Simulated scan of single mutants.
Amino acid sequence: MISLDSVAKRYGSQVVVNDVSLTIKPGGITSIVGANGAGKSTLLSLMSRLEPMNAGIITVDGLDVSTTKSEVLAKRLAILRQENHVTIRLTVRDLVAFGRFPHTQGRLTDHDQEHIDQALAFLGLTELQDRFVDELSGGQRQRAFVAMVICQDTDYVLLDEPLNNLDMRHSVLMMQHLRRIASELGKTIVIVIHDINFASVYSDSIIAMREGEVVTQGTPDEVMNSRTLAQIYDMYIPIHEIEGRRIGMYFWAPEMPVRR
């Protein structure tokens, strides 16, 4: 499991993550939700050691992320940032193969090729594997980067806004892919996501943040209620149950007062 104990992050005098303690249990999808500036992406970066903490301890299966060797941590945990750019021209297969680097240091074996094939198949990229990444659509490119992270074959996969720049159809396809990866490959997936309804429909657990702090953590049924969402987003969001899933009608919420 991933455990956070009294974790804090500051940029100068600005507190971005404030004394956060929580546990993410193995398995399934955990979504981190909250308004802009809530500290979601920063929290994910702290979990993966992309950014240092100012206080607290984070462990992954008992390994302290601050002191564990990079090559050891990279076999337990993988992260995909919100913005990803490739500076050299690569095929989709070459990009996905980068996920094997912590295991091979660039010397791919037949076993590694099997992992690459599996990642391509899970993300529906087999037929595109010889295309160059810069020739792909936005949705295809995003799937290629997720396939690279999955190919790293870690128990924990952290994704920062995996639906970024995707239209409705590709957003649904991405969440379906992630659901299959969690269920069929037994991965623990932690995602930062803006749309509370995608979090509600596809997640096993939701962590809700506001102003650097965790407001609540629980199942979608526990988090998706108007009272809790008002604490997170400062607005009343009617909740309707559709086919057993709680959906927030935020696009049809009552008019909100203007803050002065």
Rank of each mutant, 00 (worst) to 15 (best):
H85Y: 03
V17I: 12
A147L: 12
M249S: 00
V65D: 11
S226A: 13
V133E: 04
T126V: 11
I150D: 04
V215Y: 04
V20Q: 02
E114W: 08
V92L: 06
S226I: 01
H103S: 03
V149L: 08
A147G: 05
I181L: 13
M256H: 11
G56F: 03
S226L: 03
E127K: 00
L178N: 10
V15F: 05
I57M: 14
V65Q: 10
D130C: 04
V65L: 09
G56S: 07
I239D: 01
R245T: 09
G139A: 09
L178K: 07
K40N: 04
S66W: 01
Y233F: 13
E241V: 14
H240E: 11
E127V: 03
M235R: 10
D5Y: 11
A38W: 02
R89V: 12
H170E: 07
S183T: 14
S203E: 02
S183R: 15
G106P: 12
G248D: 03
C151N: 15
M256W: 11
Y250F: 15
R100Q: 06
R180M: 11
G28T: 08
F122A: 10
A199M: 07
V172M: 13
L125M: 14
A121M: 07
L50Y: 15
I196A: 01
H115T: 00
I191W: 02
K25I: 09
I24D: 04
S41I: 04
Q140M: 08
R93A: 11
R76A: 04
I207C: 08
I196E: 00
R180D: 06
T59L: 05
G28C: 09
V92A: 12
D204L: 00
F198S: 02
M209I: 10
Q105G: 12
L178R: 07
V223E: 01
L163F: 04
V16T: 05
V33N: 01
A97T: 00
Y202T: 10
D64T: 00
P220D: 09
L63T: 03
P254M: 09
I181C: 11
R169H: 13
V223I: 15
K25R: 14
Q142E: 06
V72H: 08
I57N: 15
V258Q: 11
Q176Y: 08
L128N: 09
L22K: 03
V172E: 15
L185N: 12
G106W: 02
S21Y: 12
S13E: 14
S45P: 00
Q176M: 14
I247M: 10
N164C: 00
V172S: 13
R107G: 02
D64F: 07
Q118A: 12
A8L: 03
T109S: 15
Q113A: 07
I189M: 06
G106N: 06
Y236G: 00
V15W: 01
G34T: 06
G248N: 04
Y156V: 15
L22S: 10
L136W: 01
D19N: 14
I2C: 11
V172A: 11
Q176W: 13
